[in-house]
Nucleic acid binder design. Sequence first.
DNA 1: CAAGAGATCATCT
DNA 2: GATGATCTCTTGA
Length: 197
Amino acid sequence: MGKKLPPSFFKRPTLRVAQELLGTYLVMKRNGKTRAGKIVETEAYVGEDDLACHASKGRTKRTETLYAKAGTAYVYMIYGMYYCLNIVTERKDFPSAVLIRAVEPAEGIEEMQRARKTKTLHNLASGPGKLCMAFGIGKAMNGKSITAGALYIEDRGERPAAKDIAKAKRIGVDYAKHCKHYLWRFYIKSNDSVSRK
DNA sequence: CAAGAGATCATCT
DNA sequence: GATGATCTCTTGA
């Protein structure tokens, strides 16, 4: 259907990967069924100097995955009840990743509606927690390769033009001092599945 | 519609 | 013992 993105795609500057992921498809194949959605919103977290990045507190049991090689899934639990999906970028031992914040449902929509207990299309996966629920992503995915497993990303030739990409401050990182002002959140303009405009 | 609170737990101090 | 890279529901204008 499309081209599966190889590890080399992720082994590049995080801000670039975050923008180039817009318009590509997140795909999950499980039990012979496929769920897929177009990525419409991402955020970049780059290195220990980025106070919003979990790795700013150093290399710990939790952040170990952020130091893995490019193309590794970093999944963690937040607020005791939701998961967030990130893809590790850049070189091994440099902690950086792209948070996948929202996708526009494309395939396996009934599965997603069941998992999310709602039918509204633009509410199925319009946020990091919702997206993980819709795709059935949990802590079992943490540390797994996103280029050789059930979960992967492919380019279906729908990447937006540069003028259709909006840049904004990252969500929920007010504690990150000067780093909270960085325009490291990217989303496709005028898309209904973006978490916040 | 906007604003606020509660849910609930792995991880770090 | 405190705190989130969130979401949903309730309240009140």
